[in-house]
Simulated assay, not measured.
Amino acid sequence: MTTSALTSATRRRRPKRQAGWRGLIYIAPAMALVTLFFVLPVLFTLWMSLHKWPLLGEPAWIGLRNYTRMFTDARFFNALGFTAHYTLIVTIAIFAVAFPLAIFVEKQRPLVSLYRTIVFLPVVVGLASASLLWVWLANVDSGLFAPLFDMLGLTSGRINLLAKFDTAFLTIIVMVVWKIAGFTMIILLTGLQAIPAELTEAARIDGAGRWQRFRHLTLPLMRRTMALALILSVTGSILAFDQFYIMTSGGPQNKMISVVYYIFNQSFVSFNLGYGAALSIALLLILVTLSVVQLWLLKVGDERP
């Protein structure tokens, strides 16, 4: 190769290298934040999980004993089972409410902006604040639900909705749906609005009814958006803590202790910080596995050119 050809090739590679370094400079602040607030805490938590780490005193190396302890911890598996049950129920309930709402507010109709605002308003309320609000609403003496249900004949007298497992669980589900459905609605609404109107009109002209258009056109084109909403809903439900801690304190009879609540108890009530760290790592692995599975299912059925 001649000298001029080598020089030309070097000049062509130089802009690519400069662009690469420029890109690294642009993402450096984000990488620093991720490293500082995620990678380093995870590594430190992993280090803690290999120790018997008391609140006061020197930590002692115990290797994998915290992890082997999990497999014989019945309360941990009870918390996992309750969290899975809660996640399944609340995710179905959120989608059952959010999808029809998204379809309703997607159409141009009078006051549609007002409807969207009203549905989305609970999202801006913090979960802890929403839980405190619903504790007051469910209060027997000063709340709204007890006298209202008694007046409507739904209960015989005023009852404490948070005193029994069934009514407390239902109250929390309704509160979370009221709080989260507006956010899921907005995500689904963006997916609906991204569907080309020409496709819907062509399907209608070809004689496809509403159900056929929904099944064969809307749902396939909404698959990625629904997957995003599903991942956010499942992850948020598995990490649920505020509503159980504030509204029921894990009761009645400790039947409403989620995984995060159990980690909190082990770490900051029993002061088993090492075991709490091991439980946190296990929960992180569960979340990563579920996200990978959902992303894999998202790719299944993709049409390749």
Score class of each variant (00 low, 15 high):
7 T>P: 00
8 S>A: 14
15 P>G: 11
16 K>A: 14
19 A>T: 10
21 W>S: 07
26 Y>L: 15
27 I>D: 01
32 A>Y: 13
35 T>D: 05
37 F>R: 05
42 V>F: 15
47 W>E: 14
47 W>G: 13
48 M>E: 08
49 S>D: 03
51 H>L: 07
61 W>E: 08
63 G>F: 06
66 N>P: 10
75 R>C: 00
77 F>D: 11
88 L>R: 00
88 L>C: 03
94 I>C: 00
100 P>C: 05
100 P>M: 02
103 I>G: 09
104 F>G: 01
104 F>T: 02
104 F>S: 08
104 F>H: 05
108 Q>T: 11
118 I>V: 15
121 L>Q: 08
125 V>S: 10
130 A>H: 03
132 L>M: 15
137 L>Y: 10
137 L>R: 09
138 A>M: 12
141 D>W: 03
144 L>R: 03
144 L>M: 12
147 P>Q: 09
154 L>C: 08
157 G>T: 03
157 G>Y: 07
159 I>W: 08
161 L>N: 04
161 L>K: 07
165 F>S: 09
168 A>R: 04
172 I>H: 00
178 W>S: 00
182 G>F: 08
184 T>D: 09
193 Q>Y: 13
193 Q>M: 14
197 A>Y: 13
198 E>N: 12
203 A>C: 15
211 W>V: 14
221 L>T: 08
223 R>G: 02
231 I>P: 03
232 L>T: 07
242 D>I: 07
244 F>K: 00
246 I>H: 02
249 S>N: 13
250 G>A: 05
250 G>D: 09
252 P>C: 01
254 N>P: 02
254 N>G: 01
255 K>F: 01
256 M>K: 03
259 V>L: 13
260 V>T: 09
267 S>K: 10
267 S>H: 10
270 S>H: 15
271 F>C: 02
274 G>M: 06
274 G>N: 06
274 G>Q: 06
274 G>W: 10
275 Y>N: 06
280 S>K: 07
280 S>W: 05
286 I>C: 08
288 V>H: 03
289 T>P: 01
292 V>H: 12
298 L>W: 02
303 E>M: 04
